[in-house]
């Protein structure tokens, strides 16, 4: 198991390093960063001055290593738009996004897994068809639109929940649904196919031949095996949710990291943009690694 996890850790580190290169490279994507910073109508002297001031005149490799060394210490520089430390800014905003991510994935799992199990118990039955239909419908609804509809319905027409803000738990209800429903169909489908496959497997037949009661077969023997791939998927989906928080947070005007990402992009705030891409990617890498570890614990075949 140690070997398996160390292998995964190596890959995770390599991926993280690559992502850092890409995040850093962003500032060169639109051409000379000094020109961009200087703005229009800048004289060549001013541009040269800015270039020297920000160290853009050094070799790119040196600039990258310098940036990375600072980043590793949590120093992403100062945001030119918000005029404060990027790290402080993000740390402040991340709380809402993480809360939302945890709530979203919980919602997706709590709805998706039972639905998948129910559908798998009677393939091609009405329940199964209904579950699959809901999944296809769910996957086709754009989340920003769904958010707006929910606002119209629950905030404007019924007045049950606030349309925006995170002042109380009520403010999280709609964003959680909007963030979570998009991952639900995938989780439901994977649970369903996993359960159908497992329920048709030889060892379930063995369990039945032993006279194990049906309920125990379903939960002890079948679900335990079917849930293993779902763990990996949930980690991936949770990573995606952080990205999805950009949309959700801007629809519900929640001032989390996703909203910050949108602000930094529309204001051309490069240091913040870089830091956010790196941090969101790192979260994804950490989630998937944790899922691998959890799977090694769930599946004895991965332990040896």
């Amino acid at each position: 198991m140690l070997r398996y996890l160390l292998g995964r850790l190596g890959m995770a580190a390599l991926v993280a390093l690559t992502v850092s290169v890409i995040s850093f490279g962003l500032i060169y994507m639109a051409g000379d960063p000094a020109v961009a910073l200087a703005g229009e109508n800048a004289t060549p002297e001013i541009i040269a001055q800015i270039r020297a001031q920000h160290g853009y005149d050094r070799p790119i490799a040196v600039q990258y290593l310098d940036w990375l060394a600072h980043a590793l210490r949590g120093d992403f520089g100062v945001s030119p738009y918000f005029k404060i430390e990027v790290a402080t800014l993000i740390a402040d905003r991340l709380r809402i996004t993480m809360t939302l991510g945890v709530l979203g994935i919980s919602f997706a799992l709590l709805v998706g897994v039972p639905m998948g199990v129910l559908a798998a118990m009677r393939p091609n039955s009405m329940i199964d068809r209904a579950a699959l239909f809901i999944a296809v419908v769910g996957q086709a609804i754009p989340s920003f639109w769904f958010g707006l509809i929910l606002i119209v319905l629950f905030a404007v027409n019924l007045g049950w929940l606030p349309a925006s803000g995170a002042d109380s738990w009520k403010g999280f209800v709609l964003p959680t649904i909007v963030l979570g429903y998009y991952a639900t169909p995938a989780i439901m489908r994977l649970t369903r196919t996993g359960m159908i496959e497992v329920l048709g497997s030889d060892y379930i037949r063995t369990a039945r031949a032993k006279g194990v009661p049906p309920r125990k077969i379903l939960f002890k023997h079948a679900l335990r095996n079917a849930v293993i791939p779902v763990v990996s998927l949930a980690a991936v989906q949770m990573g995606f949710m952080l990205g999805g928080s950009i949309v959700t947070e801007s629809v519900f005007a929640l001032h989390g990291a996703g909203y910050l990402a949108w602000q930094s992009i529309s204001r051309n705030d490069l240091p913040t943009m870089q830091a956010l891409i790196l941090i969101f990617s790192l979260f994804y890498i950490i989630f998937t690694f944790l899922a691998d570890a959890l799977n090694a614990w769930l599946d004895p075949r991965l332990r040896d």
């Binding site: 030889d202 060892y203 037949r205 063995t206 369990a207 335990r224 095996n225 769930l298 004895p300």
Partner: peptide, 15 residues
């Protein structure tokens, strides 16, 4: 009554 199956490789729950 008890039964023994053909394929031993898959007859036992891996977990």
């Amino acid at each position: 009554m008890a039964m023994i199956f053909q394929e031993p490789m898959t007859a036992l729950n891996p977990c």
